[in-house]
Design a protein around this nucleic acid. Structure first.
Length: 110
DNA sequence: GCGCTGACCGCCA
DNA sequence: CTGGCGGCCAGCG
């Protein structure tokens, strides 16, 4: 399964600055539909030496996957806001970002 | 093999 | 809005 993780990490690394993707999207993009949880697991076990834009990955509701009181939540929110991604009511604003279906951009763009 | 646990997802009440 | 339920499936004891 190591190979799958490589693909997942690589894909996450492709998410452009200022954009956001969901776990499900990443899974689908690497050819593993319905494996959202695997993405979460892979992300959780990312070797620290490779710095991935994990903060650009949110759940299907556009929320952080972390509890609001956690350090990570605060950091994620901070980083996204810093990139110009609106973080409203604990979730990225879908109204402003819109949904893109084309293969290259199953992403929320600014 | 078995049961639990997840940085998940979608549907329905 | 909240909560519950079933589905998903790799990892781990």
């Amino acid at each position: 399964m190591q190979a799958e993780y490589e693909k997942i990490w690589a894909k996450i690394g492709e998410v452009p600055y200022g954009s956001v993707a969901t776990y499900g999207q990443i899974a689908a993009m690497v050819g593993l539909p319905r494996h959202a949880r695997l993405v979460g697991y892979a992300l959780r076990h990312t070797p620290d030496h490779m710095r991935l834009p994990w903060h650009r990955i949110v759940n299907a509701k556009g929320e952080s996957a972390f509890p609001v009181d956690s350090e990570q939540y605060a950091l994620q929110k901070k980083l996204l806001t810093q990139e110009g991604v609106a973080f409203i009511g604990g979730k990225v604003s879908l109204n402003q970002f819109g949904w893109h279906e084309s293969l290259d951009e199953l992403l929320w763009k600014p």
